[in-house]
Design a protein around this nucleic acid. Structure first.
Length: 826
DNA sequence: CAGTGAGCGAGCTTCCGCTTGACTT
């Protein structure tokens, strides 16, 4: 770090010397002129001169400030030479994070400070605003945007007469010109609504978290948004745990059609589901002697309409379902598409498309698919608390149905393109057919549903997916039959089925739920998920599929046969479930701070923020009404509640007669045999990741004490098998060897363990291909999971095709590193 | 990158919402 600074200085110094000295002291020898002592002084002089010169040349009559630099770049193009457009990079001031920074005794006066990473940009904006004739504050037209404009005007000490507040909802020339012609003043009520929001969140977060430090665990947190997200996950898990599965028998027949219209099969389901196997068998038995006739044929037209264009939340959901992206991955890629000018802004809650976009859609759709496929639509947002400062997420140039770039970028862009185009397309027209089939010896009926697409409309481009996992098999076209026609069943099957518990949340479906509740904003969905994972309140568990048996009874020919089949169910990954810590904290908050994690809390305070924004309510009095009782509860809970450990007594250890207790320990959930009061110290063992204090049973708990297990000895050293944070492992000579899924630490033998160790040792030799040492650290050529690569300064570099890693020399490595860094840098 | 869990007591942790840096015409 220090080295960098001095290098920098050296460089600046040199560049100064060549210019300044040559210009004003050409007669002096370059080497002798400036002594090191003078360097700093001249440097400062030069810097001051440079700043002055820059501001002189860049001085525009108009300074426009927006939030995002990418936006600044596009707007600058529309506005021309007289306007200089700069970006504030979001909020510039905030409450310092070291302390509460709200004077609760003095009308909740907040103390703001310039965020450390914004000092530089503020310096620049201050200089530019001084020389500008008019400063246009063009941050977003929502609560946060208005606050940014206000913070800017305060921080830059802007003169009211030369400051104008403008906003545009879309980045098009007419919209921008219109905005310039219709400026207004900063809306102080809206600013106050934002201050109320900010102060409320700070008060809740910074008073509640310390309560948890004292009563549950240090360094954990609670907040208006994250705690509700955790609650959702905890309660879903409870629903799953308490779910009572019901069994039923579903009867499906395949009717053969062979008539003047042609041949075919009608799959039809019986109108009643049976609750026992006996009933199902009895029905199939009776069906042997029955005849089946077409009772009724009903044809109805139907339609399907496209989904609205993407918002942040719907983009995250579809990218998760269709592309398997996590919400943060989706946002990262979308950000890059945005910065490349390929899509519009990616943090939005609006489904609105600009006129420009709809016109482009018209052109694209009529060109590619024909006039019949175009239908312009404006969608209405349904989500609570939407502020709609931006457009929906769409491609900037709809004419590009594809882009150049990396795979994931292409995929996400394509998804956005399809969704946008489809949103302006015609409905799909369907014909739905229902055929009812009578049974001669029974009052029940079979029903077949068919669906034919008559006009595909938007389905040509895009099909929205759903969260339901096992969607029923698709209804296709049914063969043509006439009323009264007798049908022959090829087979009739009764299958045992099970009702399903609700599904665990994925990252994206949790975001969807939060949006429905009006909790969180487009810019915070992804970070919130990251926070609750990082705090270890929720986790993603890899759940392997389990095998389940079910009855399958078939009538074929004249005989009914019953058999037992097997299916694999319940495999899960990337699903969110609560940890014991999450459950513990949630229970604590539910007991003492229910109003904060009430699902309506955010919705209710939002209503009050709206009233503040309308000027109908004083923000400080709103905060006061909340804070007084809240703070009292905080004091009361600190004073009167006990430290919580979620303790549960499982029973008695048969070997020792001591009690077995599970509880939250310092590093996670533990089980202990005996108590601290006993003469002997209690024995401890950690719970596995997929076990929980609430559900573990005595036998499982005792099982945990079988580890760590000494498997045997080699060269007088112990081999110990155990399960750690990263799964089962073997410890030998102070080193750790992962067991993976192949071996169970409870049953692995000495021979197998030695083999695992030898394999890993052999792998390590193969892993290191070669090494070079340089002044800046070691360059290693390594064999990784995806083939050979170069590792340097904790960064990895791909080896270009055609180069043999075995024969690489230092110069080649340096070249690759330099080249890669350069490409990444841009 | 893995194992721990007595008790004492420094000094620290924490919120939500905007936005992407990075030094010279």
């Amino acid at each position: 770090m220090k080295e960098d600074v001095s290098k920098e200085r050296r460089h600046l110094f040199d560049s100064f010397k060549t210019r300044f000295q040559k210009k004003y002291f050409p007669f002096l020898d370059e080497k002798h002129f400036i002594l090191p002592l003078h360097a700093n002084f001249f440097l400062k002089l030069y810097q001051a001169y440079y700043r002055w010169k820059e501001s002189f040349y860049n001085m525009s009559k108009n300074l426009v400030i927006v939030e995002s630099p990418a936006k600044a770049k596009t707007i600058e193009k529309f506005l021309g030479k007289d306007y200089q457009v700069k970006s504030s990079f979001g909020h510039i001031r905030d409450l310092p994070k070291q302390e509460l920074s709200i004077d609760v005794e003095n009308n909740y006066k907040p103390t703001y400070e310039i965020s450390p990473d914004k000092k530089k940009i503020i310096k620049e904006l201050t200089a530019l605003s001084k020389s500008a004739e008019i400063v246009w504050l063009a941050s977003d037209e929502d609560r946060e945007g208005e606050a940014i404009a206000w913070h800017l005007s305060e921080t830059l000490k802007l003169d009211k007469d030369k400051t104008k507040r403008i906003a545009f909802h879309e980045i098009t020339k007419p919209a921008i010109e219109y905005a310039i012609q219709n400026p207004r003043a900063i809306d102080e009520n809206l600013v106050n609504a934002q201050q109320a929001r900010r102060v409320l969140d700070r008060l809740v977060g910074y008073e509640l978290s310390p309560v948890l430090w004292r009563k549950v665990k240090p360094a954990i947190s609670a907040g208006r948004v994250q705690s509700v997200a955790v609650r959702l996950v905890v309660e879903r898990e409870e629903e799953i745990r308490h779910f009572k599965q019901e069994i039923y028998y579903k009867v499906v027949a395949q009717f053969i059609v062979d008539n003047k219209f042609g041949k075919g099969v009608i799959p039809a389901e019986l109108s009643q589901r049976f609750s026992t196997k006996e009933e199902a068998v009895a029905f199939l038995q009776s069906a042997i002697d029955a005849t089946f006739t077409v009772y009724d044929i009903e044809k109805k037209p139907g339609k399907r309409s496209p989904a609205p264009p993407f918002t942040t939340s719907t983009l995250q959901q579809e990218a998760s379902r269709k592309l398997g992206f996590s919400v943060s991955k989706t946002m990262m890629i979308a950000q890059q598409l945005y910065e490349n000018g390929q899509i519009t802004y990616m943090r939005t809650d609006s489904v609105n498309l600009s006129e420009l976009a709809i016109n482009a859609a018209k052109e694209v759709i009529t060109n590619q698919f024909g006039n019949d496929y175009f239908k312009p639509r404006q969608y209405q947002t349904k989500s609570k608390g939407a502020q709609e400062a931006h457009e929906a997420i769409r491609p900037t140039y709809l004419h590009n149905s594809e882009i150049e770039g990396m795979q994931d970028h292409k995929k996400l862009y394509n998804l956005i393109w399809k969704r946008t185009v489809a949103s302006q397309m015609s409905d799909a027209k369907l014909e739905k057919t229902t055929i009812q089939i009578n049974i001669s010896n029974n009052t029940l009926r079979f029903t077949a549903h068919g669906e034919v697409i008559i006009f595909d409309g938007f389905l040509k481009v895009y099909h929205e997916s759903t969260d339901e996992e096992n969607s029923e098999e698709k209804n296709g076209l049914l063969p043509q039959v006439v009323k009264g026609e007798e049908l022959d069943p090829k087979e009739i099957n009764a299958t045992q089925r099970f009702t399903q518990s609700p599904a665990r949340y994925t990252e994206a479906s949790l975001v969807k739920k939060m949006e429905e509740l009006g909790i969180g904003r487009p810019s915070t969905y992804a970070p919130t998920i990251t926070t609750i994972l990082k705090r270890d309140y929720v986790q993603k568990l890899l759940r392997p599929a389990v095998s389940r048996e079910y009855d399958f009874i078939q009538l074929k020919g004249n005989s009914v046969k019953a058999q037992i089949k097997k299916e694999q169910i319940g495999a899960e990954k990337d699903k969110l479930s609560p940890t014991d810590m999450g459950i513990l904290v949630n229970n604590f908050l539910m007991e003492y701070f229910y109003n904060i994690i009430d699902y309506n809390f955010t919705a209710n305070v939002e209503k009050e923020f709206d009233e503040i924004a309308e000027g109908d309510m004083e923000w400080t009095s709103m905060i006061d009404r909340f804070y007084k009782p809240f703070h009292k509860t905080v004091d009361n809970v600190i004073e009167n509640s006990h430290h919580v450990r979620g303790e549960r007594n499982l029973g008695v250890d048969p070997a020792t007669g001591k009690s077995v207790i599970v509880k939250m320990g310092r590093f996670g959930s533990i089980v202990q045999i005996g108590t601290a009061a006993d003469e002997e110290k209690p024995r401890y063992a950690a719970l596995l990741k997929n076990q929980s204090i609430d559900t573990i049973i005595l036998e499982e708990a005792l099982e945990l004490f079988r580890l760590p297990r000494v498997i045997g000895h080699k060269d007088n050293e112990e081999l110990v098998a155990a399960i750690g944070r990263y799964g089962p492992y073997i410890r030998f000579e102070g080193k750790f060897y992962s067991l993976g899924k192949l071996y169970d630490p409870l049953t692995i033998t000495l021979e197998e363990a030695i083999e695992v160790i030898n394999e890993k040792k052999a792998g390590e030799v193969k892993k290191n291909i070669k090494e070079f040492s340089t002044d800046n650290g070691e360059i290693k050529v390594l064999n990784g999971r995806y083939g050979p690569y170069i590792s340097f300064n904790k960064k990895n570099y791909k080896i270009p095709k055609g180069l043999d890693p075995q024969t690489l020399i230092l110069e080649e490595c340096l070249e690759i590193i330099e080249k890669t860094d350069k490409e990444k840098g841009k």
